[in-house]
Design a protein around this nucleic acid. Structure first.
Lengths: 291, 291
DNA sequence: ATTGATCATAGACGTGGTCTATAGCTCCTG
DNA sequence: CAGGAGCTATAGACCACGTCTATGATCAAT
């Protein structure tokens, strides 16, 4: 089997028309080039160059070989350039999976500064439920997932991100509750608006109430955080939302937080990557940024 | 600079999805493959493969690299196949320069058997005068030239071929000369047909007559051997032709040789190749055949 | 648990590619 | 025409690097 290094030497010798020049280009000595070309010629049993005192020119067989090798070498050069650009993040893509609300309220600022630093990296946001995100991760369809913890999966490595505080909020319609500290029992007398049944937040709050001996049954179920906010501020009920996601509404006064006589446990957001799978350069740079 | 051998290893590892399989394909051990891949990864600063207990799969960066390297490797394989076929004379071409008459009467039988042996070799016959043939040879436009000797050119190597005997012939119209031995003086009383002025045969015969103190001035000058034969047999004069080229006419009796009282010097045909320039495989096989 | 895959790592080995030095050749120049 | 400045080829020494063996680590399947 022929050593492919020889083709590199052949390429430069043919391209420059001189073994000496090829040697300079390859940072080796002329006898090495001479030797390499001879090896190729012996392997093929054909002469590839006419040698004369001015340099070398290709024989017809050499021309034939060159027509293939030139293309091959150009491809390799392109490959090397591409690899360098992938490393420098001058190209490549970053694929993140998670929920729309986390994207909007947590990831977005990071994405902005990442995109500013690496404008050539294509960004793919793949929204879905946590199990879907985990599945995408395992299928290699995303580099990185964002979700609320805990995540228990031996194949997945989790890094803690921001800590979020969920709370109940109401609009001006329930102004009488402002400043008061409610018991759970009292709270349940109001119409409750919750996120749809399959979400992790929903499961968490249901469990919490159960642990205190209550059952929480919403009047309204919705599928987006925006609707939770919207409906609460319109006075249709009391929504259970992430405090950090409604800072604007709290400031404006279109929503206010309802104090409870128990402490709502914080919820931890985490990044998920596949354990034992190297991160793409684009993804690892993003994680660095977030840290 | 990256050792191109590593791409060969990478190609096989990616293609087979297994370092062990790649090792078998490349007739090296698995640790060598492992080592080679790691070298590539270090050079690029990127991870190319996901490793697991079933083998390896490409990372996104690896996929990108593979898309280039695969094409490159395929080109090299094609190149190697092509080189092998050039060596086996399953492809290639043979370009011969010389005069039409030498092609027709001397080279043709060799060409036939050559073509039979190597039917895939394309044959190019490039007819021209001897100086033109030499020029073509120097420009690399032909591999091989055929011409009458002597050729004096330091760049050209000459190999002797057949020896030809030129002679004067006439047709039935001059039947009275059959069997007689003519002096040059006597011969010159008949109309003479010669090849055109720029040919070597013409120069040779002119010189011969001059050396005997005569001047030979043709009634007719023609540009092809066929015409020399044609005109002589029609009785338009006495042609000076190569005996070996008119054996058919001599047998038929449409021409007969005119005996002279001097011996006509034989003329030597030779093959010309460029000195210090390797022959194409196709050409060297042809020369072997002729010998 | 055991077996049999996989790839990774460590360290020894030896070959092959690179080097220096020199020769041979051709072309150009004073 | 001698001498110099290119070029490539050859010889022989050397050592880096690619390959090997041996072993470890991990995982999956039996």
């Amino acid at each position: 089997m022929i050593n492919y290094e020889l083709y590199k030497v052949f390429y430069w010798a043919a391209k420059t028309g001189s073994l000496s020049m090829a040697a300079k280009s390859l940072f080796i000595t002329q006898p090495s080039v001479s030797h390499a070309i001879k090896q190729l010629e012996i392997s093929f049993g054909l002469t590839l160059f006419y040698r004369n005192s001015k340099g070398v020119t290709l024989t017809p067989e050499g021309v034939t070989l060159y027509s293939y090798i030139e293309k091959s070498q150009i491809l390799i050069s392109l490959a090397e350039e591409k690899m360098a650009s992938l490393k420098n993040l001058d190209s490549g893509e970053l694929r993140i999976g998670g929920s729309d609300s986390l994207f909007k309220h947590y990831i977005l600022p990071y994405l902005e500064s990442y995109h500013q630093k690496h404008p050539s990296i294509k960004l793919h946001l793949n929204h879905g439920t946590t199990p879907e995100t985990i599945a995408f991760l395992k299928e290699g369809k995303i580099d990185l997932g964002v979700a609320r913890l805990p995540i228990v999966d031996s194949q997945i490595e989790v890094m803690k991100g921001i800590e979020l505080q969920d709370c109940f909020v109401a609009g001006p319609r329930y102004a009488e509750l402002k400043g008061k500290v409610l018991s759970l029992e009292r709270l349940l007398q109001y119409p409750i608006i919750l996120f749809s049944r399959n979400s992790r937040v929903r499961m968490a709050i249901t469990e919490l109430f159960t642990s205190y001996g209550y059952q929480i049954k919403p009047e309204i179920e919705v599928g987006s955080v925006d609707l939770l906010i919207e409906l609460a501020s319109k006075g249709l009920g009391i929504s259970y939302v992430t405090k950090e996601f409604i800072s604007k509404e709290l400031d404006e006064g279109s929503l206010f937080e309802i104090q409870l006589d128990i402490k709502m446990p914080p919820s931890q957001v985490g990044f998920m990557i596949m354990r034992n799978m190297p991160l793409s350069n684009a993804a690892s740079k993003f994680i660095e940024l977030v840290k």
